[in-house]
Nucleic acid binder design. Structure first.
Length: 225
DNA sequence: GCGACAG
DNA sequence: ATCTTGTCGC
């Protein structure tokens, strides 16, 4: 079971993990956050990556883009980025707006090698990014029942993220630093983006757009020359 | 050694 | 991730 592609992917993560910055740029005050998500077809390896820009003040959608691709890397826990990154980067490139922060569907530092999807895409683009997972990678302690309550996600004595309650009496989400941001700021942002539902409006919007595009209800415009 | 394991 | 019926609540 020694897959050379998998071994190479692990080596790449180990070699890039040190590039992650856990400090936000001076005066960091994001105006536009972009939600990233990928929708998968059921009967083929077709997939669609969606990027939706949301205004941090009004939480309204100000821009969006999708990119269709084919899954070329299997789903392997811990190597998630190698499956979604190839489609997410082109989707990001199609945006007309320059987002200030990336909100990813998955983990950042809360990852076995400290280099989850959010870190990978952050380092690759140079943009601040945060990981928001619906499910933790490993065990965690439950935070209090109130919106805003949280408990640290610890890995070998190190805090790698937080189990954060975004709504009263609703399952928590798992927030971790992706790149160029600190955990406090990341959680702050997630709460601002989640005024009503468990998940941030950014990921909700990206998830929705991805499904619509897969169903052919919205066009998948390809810009090429 | 065995199980658990983002989407 | 994706497939699904009904059910509960605003």
């Amino acid at each position: 079971m020694n897959d050379p592609a998998v071994e190479q992917a692990v080596r790449l993560q180990l070699g890039m993990a040190h590039l992650v910055e856990q400090t936000a740029p001076a005066g960091f005050a994001p105006k536009v956050a972009v939600g990233l998500d990928v929708a998968y077809a059921q009967d083929s390896d077709r997939l669609i990556a969606a990027a939706v820009c949301v205004d941090m003040t009004t939480l309204t959608i100000v821009d969006s883009a999708v990119h269709e691709a084919v899954a070329d890397f299997p789903y392997v826990p811990g190597l998630f980025a190698f499956r979604e990154l190839p489609a997410l980067l082109p989707a990001l490139a199609k945006l007309t707006t320059s987002p200030d922060v990336l909100v990813c569907d998955g983990q950042g530092l809360a990852h076995p090698r400290g280099f989850g999807l959010a870190c990978h895409i952050g380092v690759e683009t140079g943009l601040p990014s945060i990981g928001v997972g619906k499910q933790a990678l490993g065990q965690f302690e439950a935070p209090g029942p109130t919106r805003g309550d949280w408990k640290p996600l610890v890995d070998n004595g190190e805090t790698v993220g937080r189990a954060l309650r975004t709504q009263d009496d609703v399952k928590p989400v798992f927030v971790s630093v992706g790149h160029r941001i600190d955990l406090d700021t990341a959680c702050d942002l997630v709460l601002k983006l989640s005024p009503r539902y468990r998940l941030p409006e950014t990921t909700r919007a990206a998830d929705h757009l991805g499904r619509e595009a897969l169903a052919g209800r919205v066009g998948v415009q390809d810009v090429r020359d």
